[in-house]
Amino acid sequence: MEDTTLSRRGKLASWTVVHYPPPPPHVPEEPFEPFGIAEVSFPEGIQIVGPMTKVDLSDLKLGMELETVVETYYVDHDGEAVLGWKFRSVEEEE
């Protein structure tokens, strides 16, 4: 087995919006806000799923470039932030 470091950027292959709060261990925000999920295709030949940092559906276009960032998925019942990868549009950063 060999580790490979992926590019930070990939292309939007698909997306959805989760409109209902997911079950535990995820702790949804109160009140629950629907959140976006992106499927991003990386140049290394792999596609990966992750939440989007924000959902403005009018901005989404398949094939657009997204960048990987580390952000909070949710804050657990002890007040600890659970971190993970997320995707944001490159324009958002600039």
Binding site: Y20, P22, F35, P51, Y74
Partner: peptide, 13 residues
Amino acid sequence: WHLGLPNPGYWAL
């Protein structure tokens, strides 16, 4: 599930 992706999310993609 930490990420919060339910089964229908996969099908939606």
